[in-house]
Design a protein around this nucleic acid. Structure first.
Length: 809
DNA sequence: CCGGTGACAATTTTT
DNA sequence: TTGTCACCGG
């Protein structure tokens, strides 16, 4: 898949053709640290890959001297594919991959120094949580006081900050206890021979930091370090990059070694939307300062959208204060206006969208070129229902990925036990699934025993007596037999044998809802086969054989980057002493953990694309609907409290807007079903931050709640985009008034009445709830009620005859 | 060991 | 409203 086409090396000029001046400058930068500020749709990936190709082409560096890091497997693959198409290099042999993938490769190569078993396995997020829960049982830790989820977050956070338990400051008793649990967790993982995602990063970092020869080897080796999506890096990843680049602060004892790695960081601070998981946009500024960056290039030419869309994006993001500063521009014309729609209910919003989509499809747009973006997953439901009822094919992104499915995890648990009987997480998962009469009490006994002797569950079984001992003993003996039997088998046969032995197949066959699961298990066998044949055994997991890198090097136009005579520390595929190599199975299991698989099931099918705004980053579509543009939803209420939160929401909106090539729709609804309750939301403040001249209101703009008319006649068809004209109506061929039927039990709107002298959208003050905004009015006289949205207390209905409300000017 | 029950919470996500 | 999870009874 990633092998190089048998083409001649392309010439320099063809490599660089069609680059704009900024892109060209970025590609041909001198060998120094540099920061590329790459706006949305500015050809960032192209610049990155062309830069690598150019470095190789000009002999500046050999393939072995390049380190290119991304966040997702998808991005890494794309980089390799594109590079492979540009130059006849063996991209698989190069250090191009995700942070975690590369750390894995590094740790496999130096597993002894890293104090890990060669076949260490990787805990995914689920595994990590169950590992912590198991710990809680063993040590009687109160899940009420220290929720396992929260503990998981704490541990992950510490690792991201590069902190081991002994380095975390115990500022209070609670933290002290957490640190204690963190330590217990660490011990448990170490004993079991497993690492979590954070550990992959942290242990790699520590090994580089503490081992001078290793660090200097890699510093010498990686002449060019390229990092994608730099704004998403966390503290540890930044430190890792810094360590590999060797900024001079860490020269060896004799001081003779001068590190030379050049870092090319590519990112966009305006698209930083992952602060919640530890990303630090500040790394960009830190990078410039700490690395003494002299070259900064802005890629501002956008090749994706017309200026109405880009002006909207630019105007919106200009409301953020913390920016490095960048403006997207295009040589395309204005393109279509940004269409804005106001619905009476989430249901009506979905209906409208479906009709609009039908129209788009009629006009010849492919369904997969139409995307619906929303802030939170819960919003997809109504839309799905509407699409389903309209028989419109759609695809929801997100949700469980292939290797995260229960049946797959169950099968993997058996496979992991074959590889490593000490893996207690897998033991617990497999021991009584499918059910084989091993109850909770037996397992508790076993766990007590294991803890007392500090050994693995599987080692403690021999100490069990009675029925418990017999049952669990039989399970374990079965695993041992299976391990024997599968010796020398192909990966495929090993998995088939395991599925048989475990009774998973029988179990799911008996389950009348197990058909899908059986299908997935069959798919697991396929995945294993393609892992061996197409991907090539273990290349994700194992350091490459020497000859392969050698081949990559000799194919390079120049090989001055890496001295072939120096010891190649990262390629000890077989263990130096025992000659042991990673089994295909261990490699496959690693692959499963590091690449959880697509979650886009029927990819390739022409279906409407539904996803969160986060998931849409990096993608583009002809037509984009951004839905639920309401206060509390987008910007989300949990983010509105602090300035940073709001700015991140705005960046999120920026990302959403810039996904659209041709047509962009923004919609909001007056009412929305959320958590089983109807909420009344104001339209998003982001509307106020968009340039009116780029927008076109295609709704009869409502005057106050419910548009009066109720839902019928009398609405005033005016809006920022001017009167709702017949022309517009004809153009879209849709009568929008039909959506103004609230499907949910919306309160009957006051018609022209303003009870108590209040108006919708007016700000009022309540002695208890503070300041709020009137969102609806209802009834007259004594019965007059107002619905008010209080930022701190939520939406409330207040009887005007009782509530002491003061209008706020 | 299953299946029912009630409590509870419910942005965003990759590895 | 929906999904998850701990707990309990058959």
């Amino acid at each position: 898949m990633f092998s190089s086409p048998p083409s001649e090396p392309v010439s320099n000029s063809s490599l660089l053709h069609n680059l704009n001046p900024e892109q060209l400058a970025a590609v041909t930068l001198p060998a120094e640290h540099a920061l590329i500020l790459a706006g949305a749709g500015s050809g960032k990936t192209r610049v990155l890959t062309t830069r690598i190709a150019w470095l190789l082409q000009t002999g500046e560096v050999s393939p072995g001297g390049i380190l290119a890091v991304t966040f997702t497997n998808k991005a890494a693959k794309e980089m390799m594919t594109r590079l492979g198409a540009m130059l006849p290099v063996n991209v698989r042999g190069m250090w191009i991959g995700t942070f975690h993938g590369l750390c894995n490769r590094f740790l496999r190569a130096h597993y002894k120094l890293a104090n890990l078993p060669q076949a260490f396995q990787i805990l995914d997020t689920q595994d990590q949580l169950s590992s912590i829960k198991r710990l809680y049982k063993q040590f009687n830790i109160d899940d009420e006081r220290f929720p396992a989820k929260q503990m998981q977050w704490f541990i992950g956070g510490c690792k991201e900050d590069g902190l081991r338990p002994n380095a975390v400051v115990a500022r209070d008793d609670e933290t002290r206890k957490k640190i204690e649990i963190y330590q217990l967790y660490e011990d448990q993982c170490q004993r079991e021979g497993v690492v979590d995602f954070g550990e992959l990063m942290l242990r790699s970092y520590e090994l580089l930091r503490d081992n001078d020869p290793i660090r200097e080897h890699y510093q010498r080796r990686f002449r060019h370090i390229l990092i994608d999506e730099f704004q998403d890096t966390n503290k540890l990843q930044y430190a890792w990059v810094k360590m590999l680049a060797g900024t001079g602060a860490h020269s060896s004892v004799d001081g003779a070694f001068q590190p030379t790695g050049c870092v090319l960081a590519v990112g966009d601070d305006d698209q930083s939307i992952y602060a919640f998981r530890g990303a630090r946009v500040g790394n960009m500024a830190d990078f410039v300062r700490e690395f003494g960056v002299r070259h900064q290039i802005k890629l501002e030419e956008n090749y994706r959208s017309g200026s109405n869309i880009l002006d909207s994006a630019n105007a919106l993001i200009s409301h953020n204060s913390k920016r490095l500063g960048k403006n997207l521009r295009t040589s395309q014309g204005p393109g279509e206006p940004v269409r804005v729609f106001e619905a009476t209910s989430d249901f009506a919003e979905a209906q409208w969208m479906v009709d609009e989509m039908k129209q788009l499809v009629r006009e010849g747009h492919e369904r997969k070129e139409i995307a619906v973006l929303y802030r939170s997953n819960a919003q997809s439901r109504v839309i799905e229902t509407a699409l389903f009822n309209a028989s419109m094919p759609y695809k929801v992104y997100g949700g469980l990925r292939f290797f995260e499915r229960a049946e797959i995890k169950n099968a993997l648990a058996y496979l992991r036990l074959l590889e490593n009987p000490r893996d207690d997480t897998s033991f617990m998962r497999a021991v009584n699934f499918p059910p084989r009469g091993i109850g909770a009490r037996s397992l508790e006994q076993l766990q007590d025993l294991a803890r007392a002797s500090g050994c693995a569950l599987s080692d403690a079984v021999s100490g069990l007596s009675g029925k418990a001992g017999t049952n669990i003993g039989a399970f374990l003996a079965g695993i041992d037999v299976l391990r024997e039997q599968t010796q020398g088998m192909s990966l495929r046969d090993t998995i088939v044998a395991t599925l048989e032995h475990s009774n998973l197949l029988t179990h799911y066959k008996a389950d009348r809802e197990g058909a899908d699961r059986l299908e997935n298990l069959a798919e697991l066998v396929n995945a294993a086969e393609s892992f061996v044949s197409i991907e090539g055994f273990g290349r994700d997991a194992v350091a490459l054989p020497v000859d392969e890198l050698g081949q990559a090097l000799t194919q390079s136009p120049a090989s001055q980057g890496l001295d072939l005579n120096q010891p190649v520390l990262d390629i000890p595929a077989p263990d130096a002493e025992t000659g042991e190599t990673l089994s295909p199975l261990a490699a496959f299991l690693t692959h499963a953990a590091l690449e959880a698989g697509d979650n886009q099931a029927q990819a390739g099918q022409d279906a409407i694309q539904l996803m969160t705004v986060h998931a849409s980053k990096g993608l583009e579509f002809d037509a984009v609907f951004i839905t639920g543009m309401e206060e509390g939803l987008f910007p989300h209420e949990n983010s509105m409290n602090d300035r940073d939160g709001l700015e991140e929401e705005r960046r999120l909106m920026y990302v959403a807007i810039t996904r659209a090539r041709k047509r962009l729709y923004l919609s909001h609804s007056q009412t929305r079903m959320l958590h089983g309750q109807t909420r009344y939301n104001l339209k998003s403040r982001f509307f106020e931050e968009l340039p009116e001249e780029a927008l076109k209101w295609i709704t009869p703009k409502q005057s106050g709640f419910g548009g009066g008319s109720g839902f019928g006649g009398g609405a005033s068809y005016s809006g920022a985009g001017g009167p709702y004209s017949e022309r517009a109506r004809g153009q879209f061929g849709t009568d929008y008034t039909k959506y103004n039927t609230a499907a949910t039990a919306a309160p009957v709107p006051a018609q022209k009445e303003t009870p108590g002298g209040l108006k919708v959208k007016q700000k009022v003050f309540h002695p208890k709830f503070g300041e709020g905004t009137v969102t609806a009015l209802e009834g007259t006289g004594e019965d007059a009620r107002a619905q008010i949205n209080f930022p701190r207390h939520g939406v409330k209905w207040l009887a005007l005859s009782v509530a002491k409300l003061t209008p706020v000017p």
